[in-house]
């Protein structure tokens, strides 16, 4: 059997494993659902997210022109459903995209600290603990206020704030794995340190890392939402969920649909990721 087919069948088996429990199935379904919505957003949304149709239409009612707005419209007349559908793109894109550099930096340094130990470990751990002693939101606020709110600055803030946590996980895993026989064998074989770190150690640490990745993407989505809620999120035309909730909040008393549906959207996305992470964790611990 060739390599790609075997990894594909492996993936299918894992997905089947996850879907066999009801909570795992729900998690997988919600996650894939939002990924699907993000990919096909322009095809699924009935209107453009910035088109002004008619202000303050209630859910499931018609506009003057006889258009059905399933989730109603907001205070300046944009379709809430279309904005939620288009909002999946910035939310998913930035939360996944911001998690990667955090992983790259956190795991490289974690591998180094766990493998070389001694002064490398002492210095890196001290820096990580230093950053971790700031409450995360304080860190985000300082960075975003200092650099200004934009997608790429959110990536900087999240990388800075999450890589120490990833560093700690990878470091602990590396400390454990580096003491095993096959690492010893590789050292005696004369493999380079880089080979040992990335080819021997990292793949063996992937189980817990995949679980953490799912959780972290969810938290990053929440963070982007929180920043949007505080008025520090992605700049206005982009319909991200947190900013939708922030701008709809003054109208929440008589037009609750403007804020409730984005709340349900982000909660269900994060719930999906959490359930998925939980199920993968169960499967990992069974193996």
């Amino acid at each position: 059997m060739s390599a790609p087919t075997s990894s594909l069948t492996k993936l299918f088996r894992i997905l089947k494993d996850i879907a066999s429990s009801p909570f795992g199935f729900l998690g997988l379904f919600l996650t894939l659902f939002w990924i699907f919505v993000a990919i096909f957003a322009p095809l699924l949304a009935p209107f453009s997210p910035t088109e002004l149709i008619q202000p303050l239409v209630k859910p499931l009612s018609y506009t003057k022109n006889g258009q059905l707005l399933i989730l109603g419209s907001d205070h300046i007349g944009r379709d809430v459903l279309s904005r939620i559908i288009h909002g999946t793109r910035p939310v998913l894109f930035w939360s996944i995209f911001a998690t990667f550099p955090a992983y790259f930096i956190g795991s490289s340094l974690g591998l180094a600290a766990g493998y070389y130990k001694k002064s490398t470990d002492t210095i890196l751990s001290f820096i990580a603990n230093l950053i971790l002693s700031f409450p995360v939101l304080v860190l985000y606020l300082i960075i975003i206020v200092y650099l200004g709110p934009s997608g790429s600055n959110i990536v900087v803030a999240i990388t800075f704030a999450s890589s120490p946590a990833i560093f700690r996980i990878v470091r602990a895993l590396t400390l454990d794995i580096a003491g095993r026989d096959f690492i010893n064998a590789a050292q005696i074989r004369g493999e380079s340190s880089l080979y040992i770190l990335f080819i021997e150690i990292l793949p063996n640490a992937k189980g817990p890392l995949i679980v953490d990745f799912c959780l972290r993407v969810g938290y990053t989505a929440i963070t982007i939402g929180v920043l949007g809620f505080l008025g520090l999120g992605l700049p206005p035309p982009s319909p991200d969920w947190g900013s939708m909730i922030n701008s709809g909040r003054p109208f929440a008393l008589f037009m609750p649909h403007m804020v409730i549906f984005p709340c349900i959207a982000i909660s269900s996305f994060v719930l999906g990721l959490n359930l998925l992470a939980d199920e993968i964790n169960h499967i990992n611990s069974r193996i």
Partner: peptide
């Protein structure tokens, strides 16, 4: 899991 999934700003609204 639901408690950890619902962001605060969402529960504020709800």
């Amino acid at each position: 899991i639901i408690s950890t999934s619902v962001p605060e700003f969402a529960s504020v609204i709800l």
